[in-house]
Write a protein that binds this DNA or RNA. Structure first.
Length: 530
RNA sequence: GCGCCCGUAGCUCAAUCGGAUAGAGCAUCGGCCUUCUAAGCCGAGGGUUGCAGGUUCGAUUCCUGCCGGGCGCACCA
């Protein structure tokens, strides 16, 4: 389907360009809203007509004629509808052939051959406490986007930027010091803006248990980082690299990059501080990079960090940030631009907040910490991953923790898992294995519609890939599950007619491939029985 | 005041860079198990897509202005 889709897309582009001198926007074909409109649909005639001031139906007719000459028996019928749509109906032989290919190539059928080198940086929560529920979302979305990129053939590196220096860390260490004093009976005064969380008592205890020597700073950092790693581990997420901000500063990288910006005239002094002229690019004002007290700002090291990323030779940089960072995009892109890189090199995906049904907002610094680990203890890895992916990145996610704690019965993941279980169950009872030679016996509408939908998975993957939105895969799998359960009710797989049985086992096999591939990208385990 | 996100059925959400009759689940009501798992399937009810304009052959989608909710707007990180 992917190749067929690419082929007809190229054909349509060619026709538009040759006959009308118009370049069509991606996507040129889309899935029709209703089955009666065929398997692929295009509104290209309407678009061409509006540009040329011609009658869309005339153009649709011309396109249909041109297309008919160029597609072979893969297309059964081309239809023109109302204002000026052109609809394609696939032939049964195309469907059967593609089904064969899925079974033959298995999950490779859906893999892409992009060869870009991509760096994705996500979570990067300050190492001042365990992960919150919002961080969990960023972790899962980032991991799935990385999987998605890999599935399309790209080489992906996952990176966590560790803000292991600066005021927040200082406050953390001071807070732990107070907790140590508390344990020693010397009173406890958490500093202004310090951390109240109970987990700091654990840090303090562990530090005392170890015997006080050694750097408290190092100890805190390692302890908290291990908490974060443990949380990520529960989601089965690991990073290729933990990039240390502290190291960046110690190795003088920040001063180096400031020097470069200075030489190019993007840095100036005002009121005793050093400013970066970001307003010249994509920011609404200039930003301080070195404070009047001589210390560097967080932004300064972030410039150095992104400069470092750029120099590592990636074709694409992706950052996942929380919504509180949206105003930050402009200044980082400005820095890249000033350093001679294209701003498109960096894509920032903003992951909106996660709230609870109780409407309580999570704030890490308020001390009212809602730990991610508590959540996952209740619902488990797969359900947590699934829930986190059920909204678009830009939408708030209302995580119904009460429901998740109460029962997992309403979890749509069960509906999808049930498909796995039913397929496995049939395979166990079947006397024969799927055999693609028998696919030609698939003739009934329910069977062919199932195949049609399986083929659409390629387009779903593409859409998810280009938009960096994992939610489309979730939506597809829910729909696939619905289609399958209907199929299951209406079409009996195991029957007297061995040819039909074998043919239908092919559908199950292909469904399994799609399901396993989709779940694999989401990082969710399939089940064998329920 | 400025910027970003959101507003769709009683509730939670879909709707393929603007497309054809705005769809699912939950909840409510009614049907379907001597046959591959009923954690399922089939059916019914439920909508002025926050409001008002605009652009378009076509608007839930894009633009403008309001209303309502969330989040930002540091020489914090």
């Amino acid at each position: 389907m992917k190749f067929f889709y690419d082929k007809v897309s190229a054909l349509l582009q060619e026709i538009a360009s040759n006959n009308y001198n118009i370049t069509l926007d991606y996507p040129v074909w889309e899935l029709p809203s209703r089955q009666k409109f065929g398997d692929l649909s295009t509104a290209a005639p309407l678009k061409i007509a509006s540009k040329l001031g011609k009658n869309p139906l005339e153009i649709a007719k011309e396109i249909k004629e041109d297309l008919s000459k160029k597609v072979n028996e893969d297309v059964k019928r081309i239809e023109i509808v109302k204002p000026g749509f052109v609809n394609l109906f696939f032939s049964e032989s195309l469907l059967i052939n593609e089904l064969r290919e899925i079974i033959q190539y298995k999950q490779n059928y859906f893999k892409g051959n992009n060869k870009r080198k991509v760096l994705i940086e996500f979570v990067s929560a300050n190492p001042t406490g365990p992960l919150s529920i919002a961080h969990g979302r960023q972790a899962v979305v980032g991991d799935v986007i990385a999987n998605l990129l890999e599935a399309q053939g790209n080489k992906v590196k996952r990176e966590y930027y560790l803000n292991d220096q600066g005021r927040q860390i200082d406050l953390l260490v001071l807070s732990v010091k107070e907790r140590i004093k508390e344990i020693e009976g010397k009173g406890c005064q958490i500093p202004e803006g310090g951390y109240q969380g109970e987990y700091l008592k654990d840090v303090a205890k562990a530090y005392l248990k170890k015997g006080k020597g050694g750097s408290l700073y190092e100890f805190c950092l390692n302890y908290i980082q291990s908490l974060i790693k443990a949380d990520l581990d529960k989601l089965n997420i690991s990073f290729d690299d933990w990039f240390s901000q502290k190291k960046l500063i110690e190795e003088n990288k920040v001063e180096e990059v400031i020097k470069i910006l200075k030489e190019d005239g993007f840095v100036y002094e005002k009121e005793g501080a050093l400013w970066f002229n970001s307003a010249k690019f994509f920011d609404d004002k200039d930003r301080v990079i070195k404070k009047s007290d001589g210390t560097l700002t967080y932004f300064a090291s972030d410039i150095a960090y992104h400069y470092n990323k750029c120099r590592r030779g990636y074709d694409k940089l992706i950052n996942l940030w929380g919504p509180d960072h949206h105003g930050y995009i402009g200044r980082v892109k400005s820095a890249l631009k000033a350093l001679g890189y294209k701003e498109e090199l960096l894509t920032v995906v903003i992951i909106q907040l996660v709230s609870l049904k109780s409407k309580q907002r999570m704030s890490k610094r308020a001390g009212k910490l809602i730990r991610f680990s508590e959540l996952i203890k209740e619902v488990g890895k797969d359900a947590a991953r699934f829930y986190y992916l059920t909204r678009k990145n830009s939408s708030h996610l209302d995580f119904d923790i009460d429901l998740a704690q109460k029962s997992s019965f309403d979890n749509p993941l069960y509906y999808i898992h049930y498909v796995c279980a039913r397929i496995e169950s049939i395979f166990k009872k079947a006397n024969s294995l799927p055999d693609e030679k028998f696919s030609k016996y698939l003739k009934e509408p329910q069977e062919l519609n199932m195949v049609r939908f399986l083929l659409q998975f390629s387009l779903c993957l593409q859409k998810s890939y280009y938009s960096l939105e994992p939610v489309f895969i979730i939506e597809y799998l829910k729909e696939l599950a619905s289609m399958f359960h209907k199929f299951y009710e209406k079409v009996r797989v195991l029957g007297d007619d061995s040819k039909k049985t074998k043919a239908r086992l092919n559908i199950l096999q292909a469904t399994k491939e799609v399901l396993y591939f989709g779940l694999g990208i989401l990082g969710i385990e399939p089940v064998e029985e329920m």
